[in-house]
Computed example of a mutant assay.
Amino acid sequence: MKINSLGYAAMLLCAGAAQAQSSNVVLYGLLDVNVSNYDSGAKAKAGNLTLVQDGTVNGLNGSRWGMRVTEDLGNDLKAGVVMEGGLLADTGALAQGGRAFGRQVFVSLTSASLGELRMGRQYILEDSVMGLSNPFVNALTLNQGTAVTNMGKSLPFWLNAPRADNVVQYATPTWAGFTGTVQIAPGEATADRFHGLKAAYTLGNFNSALSYEWNKSRSSGSDTNKSLTLAANYNFGLFKLLGGYQKNDELTTTSGNGAAAGIGLTVTGPNGVFTADAIKGYTLGVEVPLGDFLLGSNYSSVEYSGVAANKTGKSATLGKLGFGVKYGFSKNTFVYSSISFASGDLQEYISQERVMQVGLRKSF
């Protein structure tokens, strides 16, 4: 919904309308709810569970509302604002820990010839790279960025904490299909400093990108949580092939911000319990459009590795095979369904050995 910024300011802000006449304000929203059934592995002993949940888990998108503001400053320069809050449509609660604008909130300056500068809470670069590697773009039970519950404790599959606080980001213009982006977020004495780099290349139906992200520990000063992600896809018309690879080293649970924020690293499997300090994995998938339907399937796998108390290295594997379908009633309204099956060493030790879900998503 687009509204004149003069009227918006008069209604909501009572601010100086004369200074904002060239601005454009867009209000938008999205609701996504699904019903998911979880069947746990025999060792996990979590049983069978059916949940109604927001699209932040297994959906096409997390529910949200937001506002975008753009102002043409002239001389190839535009100013912008994005304020986006997440909500849980199944309960009505705020998402992202109850933040008012937990999904993203930033101010920007953009020039077609010089690039874009953003400051505020933003998506980290790895999230967009990973989105190139799987059908439905980081969604449904096919999403390799969704964590698993390993014997009652959360464990990342691919590393993907999608947002970071206090981020300053610069993105270059596109040069012959290439773009580059850099992020930095100071720890501000409460979190480790976060850094991110991304390079992307597009040529016709081919899309590719890589990101490298890491923390600078506020206690030791060493580099930790080093995460390399690569992804590519090619659209052949009748179908699209997708794939990706991720390698994470020097993992910790104390970053407080960035790609490793909020993760757990305790792995319980057939080889006992150990703390993982490295995770590597790959994904391969296919996407097939059939009229108003979109079909997708992929297989993703990871290996957790670490050092046990007796200094003998331990490792464990976990895989996920997924199938999904999306049907569009319009460009704003979709129904979807998917199913995934676990494999590997930890198959029987997680609460998501088999997941089925069906959902409805509406944007406006």
Rank of each mutant, 00 (worst) to 15 (best):
T181G: 09
K216N: 12
Q53S: 07
D32V: 06
I124S: 03
T91P: 10
T172A: 03
L265E: 01
V335D: 07
T172Q: 01
V148E: 00
Y212L: 09
L238R: 13
A231N: 02
A308C: 15
L242A: 03
Q169S: 11
A100H: 11
L251N: 04
L360D: 03
L159P: 05
D249S: 15
K240S: 07
N205I: 02
Y299E: 01
E71R: 08
M67H: 09
R354E: 10
N248T: 03
V325W: 09
V273N: 15
Y349V: 00
S5Q: 05
L318G: 06
V307Q: 10
R193P: 09
K247W: 11
L30A: 03
G86S: 11
G272Q: 03
A209S: 03
L142H: 06
L77E: 05
K226Q: 10
T229R: 10
L77Q: 03
Y8A: 09
Q347G: 04
W214M: 13
T172C: 02
K216M: 15
A79C: 14
L109R: 03
G86M: 04
Q21R: 12
G291Q: 11
V107P: 02
Y212A: 01
G262P: 03
Q53F: 04
R361H: 14
L27F: 08
D345R: 04
S128C: 07
L142A: 10
N257Q: 05
K326H: 15
E250N: 14
G177F: 00
Y245E: 08
D54G: 06
K78R: 14
G98T: 04
T179W: 00
V168K: 06
